[in-house]
Design a protein around this nucleic acid. Structure first.
Length: 187
DNA sequence: TAGGCCATCTGGTCCT
DNA sequence: AGGACCAGATGGCCTA
């Protein structure tokens, strides 16, 4: 293992350099980050680190908006910057991986839920909080339809006309929901 | 440029 | 003990 793995710029907050020597001609503004400074009890090795990240990235299908938009060398670079920025214990790293996967499963559940709430055809992707609020209002409205035995289509039309009063305390309580429902094909 | 939304990391707590 | 869950902090991206 080399003496140090990263160089950090002292004049630019977010810049690191991989390797055993500072970038040419810029030595005055670069400081070495030693492996020991990242992992105090240095005999820790992560032979499967790259593999684990690859597995996670492969299974994760991350949102494209969260990906680093850059070429391969920059992505590799960002990976090392990511590693450099955090002092690791294997347990902490494993916990982070589990947490990321857990959040991904929650997000996929949100995607499923988004597919079940009424939206305008041209509407952009609902946020998580709006998805929850709309789902709550939608369930309440469907419940009203069931308990009153109303015809769904005419019930929605009535709500569009008179306002939906069955559900209190909801941000999506009236026209927001019923306007979306007006796009639903009931037949 | 501020605010909203989001992903990620992290430490604490609870559960098995 | 280890994993699941949670909430706070942080930083990036996007939009009005």
């Amino acid at each position: 293992m080399s003496d140090f793995l990263f160089w950090e710029r002292t004049d630019q907050q977010d810049s690191f350099q991989l390797g055993g020597s500072p970038p040419a001609g810029k030595s005055s503004s670069w400081l070495p980050i030693t492996w020991h400074s990242l992992v105090p009890d240095a005999e820790i090795a992560f032979p499967d680190l790259g593999e684990q990240i690859q597995q996670l990235e492969g299974s994760a299908e991350p949102d494209s908006s969260s990906l680093v938009q850059s070429d391969d060398s920059t992505q590799l670079w960002d990976h090392h910057k990511f590693v450099a920025a955090h002092s690791y214990s294997p347990q902490r790293y494993a916990a982070n991986v589990r947490e990321r996967k857990r959040m991904l499963s929650i997000n996929s559940a949100f995607d499923v839920l988004r597919g079940h709430v009424p939206t305008f055809p041209y509407e952009k992707r609902l946020s998580k909080i709006d998805t929850l609020r709309l789902a709550i209002a939608y369930i309440a409205l469907l419940s009203d339809i069931l308990t009153t035995g109303s015809d769904p289509k005419s019930y929605v039309q009535k709500c569009m006309k008179n306002g939906y009063t069955g559900h209190q305390n909801a941000r999506w309580n009236t026209s927001d929901l019923t306007a979306r429902l007006s796009w639903v094909k009931w037949d």
